[in-house]
Amino acid sequence: MTDTNMKILVVDDFATMRKIIKNILKKLGFQNIAEAEDGVSALEVLKKQEIDFIVSDWNMPNMSGLELLKAIRSDEALKDKPVLMVTAEAQKENIVEAVKAGVNNYVVKPFTPETMKEKIDKIFA
């Protein structure tokens, strides 16, 4: 069973979308949630706080979700952190690109709390 006490970092450039994702995570029982507005600030949070799981948007200014994922995988201290990519991009080549970069799972917007739960459970199974 997925540990609902783990600390999750939600990364999205839109505050509204962060709020929506946080609401969904709270419905699924997760209470320990940090936020970042792009890849650059996410990396800062990851270096300062003990984060167990990253939920990141793809299309963001400064540093995209894919660039963030690559930065996490190439950092000795962060490389094993599970990452769930949340994106509106459902085209095959995008999914392939994220998988190649080492994403743990992928959820296409719009999604229901049930879909989010399935994706998270698969990561922590």
Partner: peptide, 16 residues
């Protein structure tokens, strides 16, 4: 923000 996000989601779905 939400209108931008909805536009983005519809764009992603339509392109797929």
């Amino acid at each position: 923000d939400a209108v931008g996000e909805i536009t983005n989601m519809i764009s992603g779905g339509v392109r797929a």
